[in-house]
Amino acid sequence: SPQAEVMGKAKELFVLCDKESKGFITKRDMQRLQGELPLSPEQLEEVFESLDRRSNGFLTPVEFNTGLGELVGLEDTA
């Protein structure tokens, strides 16, 4: 299914953000993406906070996948 495909990609995208292969993403990791992605520091912070459901400062693969999955779900219905 397209959703399963997205979830597979989510893992690869997570690895791109998890620069030190810690198994989670911090705000510092997001800030490092600044030069690589066409997003402002503010936007990267917004993305982080949107995905960080528990607001504990760490993005787990599950939270990352959930965020991407919801986005795909939204796009399906749009």
């Binding site: 990609k9 995208l13 953000c17 992605l37 066409p38 917004e46 993305v47 906070e49 949107s50 939204l74």
Partner: peptide, 29 residues
Amino acid sequence: DPNIKAGAASEGVLANFFNSLLSKKTGSP
């Protein structure tokens, strides 16, 4: 869209983030 959370990124920003990551991934070996 009322689903957008206060203080959170809009769908557009999130989409931009993921799309940019995707193209970064496909754009590099």
